[in-house]
Design a protein around this nucleic acid. Structure first.
Lengths: 215, 215
DNA sequence: CCTTGTGAAATAGTTCACAGCA
DNA sequence: TGCTGTGAACTATTTCACAAGG
């Protein structure tokens, strides 16, 4: 119902969802915001507030029914269906992504994989044959996938992203080290280990004195 | 000098730094906050404010000298030195990380790689031999690396992280799908494609009507 | 002109603290 | 008692808007 839910809230939901799935697998039936917070390093108040945007899922004095809340979050996040994913770029990283076992159980099906290198066109990952990237635009029209994963070199990435967007893809997971340009209605998430490392070295520096004194 | 710089600001700095490096490589000598913002999808005011936490690097009426600003950011982020990195987990993902060419030019040296699988102990990535994960704790004492990259399965990750922390590592890049528990003085960055995808499916759902009407 | 650097204003997000219910 | 759900208070972050300088 509510249309103006902060984006930070949305991005925490998958965290809650994953923990709840684990709890459910462990046989836990009820959990409090306190316990959830402890496990995730988030304050209980924040978790309660986040969930309250979507409804009243808890029972006072008890906590949240794990099964019920898992189901609600699955609905909210749109994980009650499967999503069709295309992967572009089948180098070492792309191959690792294509063969990652974590997507399928969460409802993400990689339905096609593409590479610009003509020598890479051939059977690669178990059920999928690598297609020429030139076929991407046409395939998008025919196949209408929901999500694109971009694992091509930086200098090819914006072109691939443009093709995906023109082909009607509204969600892109970008592993290429560029600031992707997309229309506002297209979701992008960036995965960039170098930026992550550089964000940490800032803190390491300011902390160097401590570290050295332990030597 | 200033000690209370918002963390969001720090995490944008690497973005600026990378763009400035690119501009420098292209021969651009001066750039305005306007232009930087355009390229990164960030408001010019935000960029000016972010930079102002660290000093006055611009010239009114002109903009920022690319070379100067790049140099300042390199200092600020601690990229004016090399950092020693250990990688734990040499499966498909770990192998892709170990052979990624993007770390070295940014000052990150992978100095050792570890795996729990005894069969994996042997020469793997060009200059490095995979070591048994049992050797990690001892090696940390001797080698004192700065950063750990964790690419092991979820159920092994917290143990590895504990070992890294006990061994004096203060920055961890975690690819394992768990909420890592570390003391506050240890930096952690999470790389989790499934969480990223799940954050996007929420938006895809709320947008489904548009998409279907195009069919 | 043009663009920075920056207080002040506005917005966004988090935490508090307590009423209400099992 | 124990815990949720939630306005209100607080804190953080972004944006505005303009003086000042080249």
């Amino acid at each position: 119902m509510p249309l103006d839910i902060p984006n930070v809230v949305i991005d925490r939901l998958p965290l809650y969802y994953r923990l709840l799935c684990d709890l459910h697998a462990d046989g836990t039936a009820v959990v409090s915001s306190q316990e959830l917070g402890q496990a995730l390093g988030i304050t209980p108040a924040q978790i309660r507030k986040d969930l309250s945007y979507f409804g009243r899922f808890g029972k006072q004095g008890r906590g949240y029914a794990v099964r019920r809340l898992t189901e609600e979050l699955r609905q909210i996040l749109g994980l009650d269906r499967r999503w069709r994913v295309v992967l572009i770029g089948v180098g070492r990283l792309g191959t690792a992504i294509a063969s990652y076992r974590g997507f399928d159980p969460q409802g993400f099906d990689i339905v096609a994989i593409y590479d610009a290198n003509p020598e890479t066109a051939g059977v690669k990952v178990s059920p999928l044959t690598v297609r020429a990237v030139e076929a991407l635009a046409g395939d998008l029209e025919a196949q209408r996938p929901d999500i694109g994963i971009v694992a091509v070199p930086a200098d090819a990435a914006q072109d691939v992203i443009d093709t995906l967007v023109r082909g009607g893809v509204h969600a892109i997971l970008n592993y290429a080290p560029i600031a992707a340009h997309v229309p506002t209605e297209v979701q992008v998430r960036q995965i960039d280990p170098v930026l992550a490392l550089q964000g940490m070295t800032y803190h390491l520096r300011r902390h160097g004195a401590d570290e050295r004194s332990r030597a």
